[in-house]
Design a protein around this nucleic acid. Sequence first.
DNA 1: TTGAGTCTGTGCGTTATCACACATAATGGT
DNA 2: ACCATTATGTGTGATAACGCACAGACTCAA
Lengths: 245, 245
Amino acid sequence: MSSNADLKHARKNHLLDSLHDDELERVASKLEFVTLELGHVIYESGEVMDFAYFPTTAVVSMLYLMENGGTAEIGIIGNDGMVGVALVLGGETTTSRAIIQSAGDILRMRPKDLKDEFARAGRFQNLLLRYTQAIMTQISQTAACNRLHAVEEQLCRWLLLSHDRLDSDNLVMTHDLISNMLGVRREGITLAARKLAAKKLIENRRGTISVLDRQGLESAACECYQIVNTEYNRLLGRGISRTFS
Amino acid sequence: MSSNADLKHARKNHLLDSLHDDELERVASKLEFVTLELGHVIYESGEVMDFAYFPTTAVVSMLYLMENGGTAEIGIIGNDGMVGVALVLGGETTTSRAIIQSAGDILRMRPKDLKDEFARAGRFQNLLLRYTQAIMTQISQTAACNRLHAVEEQLCRWLLLSHDRLDSDNLVMTHDLISNMLGVRREGITLAARKLAAKKLIENRRGTISVLDRQGLESAACECYQIVNTEYNRLLGRGISRTFS
DNA sequence: TTGAGTCTGTGCGTTATCACACATAATGGT
DNA sequence: ACCATTATGTGTGATAACGCACAGACTCAA
């Protein structure tokens, strides 16, 4: 049985918050609360997934590691979603790594419990399927964006995606970390970040980027950010963007 | 009721072929046979989907169109899969265009029939969910590949993906078409194709590329091709690659 | 057979990003 | 207060891909 505190915490995750009280109570009784640190790997590529994760304040990156040593992020998941759709889809593993990009709290659930709830074919199943499409949209847009847009535009997109999933305007992350996510050189991020700072859109400090002008950042980003956000809104009934909240 | 000819044709699609006789008979009775031409748009971005499509000899591209005029393919679907997973996921539309990349035959089904069959929570549901994960893997790998690999490697990957889904070693497609799919310049494809021809992996003719050395092409491709193929095999019990068939 | 249309080959200068090297600056622990 | 560590700034040259322009070659239909 779950306490009110548990339920209140669970409602910080948008997917869980979309459930009715009775559904949420049943689901929440299966959830375990954990706090995870930056860099913690919650899934390794090809390995069995022990849990599905519903972030509340933590943010997770889905990362690909290539043979040539390069890395590229294919999606960001925070309080808007769930990490581990492969469990409901039946694959049990994925070809990407899931890693904590911003330390924080996260709720987790055993695969069996998740599948049992999914099999009820109720609102939760519907939500998870729609969420699957949302994350597919994010990944698809990333694929096209990686091909067609400049690093500076992509940096804006990425900062917005992270900003949306965090409480603060101060994003604690190094240029080096961002460069691994976007699959470019660290110097490329330094350069692009300096340009954005010159436009007063962000402020660069050691290990931290602060968002100064959210609107301006959206204007400087490629269309990819808004397209994905609009699609999340359509599919899940609310945007993740702070602009809509 | 469906004839034996219908069933035999349906079995050319790997997803349908994975069904047992009784399931396939029920599903096939809802399928309609059509032949579609190169360039035919079966879904437009954001528009309602009238059918789900199961290609047999046709090949479909999932294409993104950007504001700056650029285009990029996020996935290829042939007799290995289905176009329209958004219908079972509940989104009804997607943000990409689906276009016939190689003319041929295709079976189609009304959304309601697809959803009814999905709701039976049987083997077909399981298959579609696993297929969804497979296509997600393909899109994800494309995202990372677009960022980290050279055009020549990507061309090899793309030729292999197309070759797998066609009966012939002669791929009827122009450099211009391929450049739109990979999101690069036409000249870039011409150059890369000439290099591959110099290595005797393919032969370039006007409007046609012939695969001469399938093994060599796989060696020249980035790892992305094999990763996706292995994952299809794991999820759906068979690889799409001709190497495995 | 001729010509319009399409596809491919090639050259040019431009730009974005890369790879490497190293200087400078901020931070945190002792 | 100091030092080791980590993060950022900057320079130089290499490379990959771009945009544009146009020539040549193939194809199909009149």
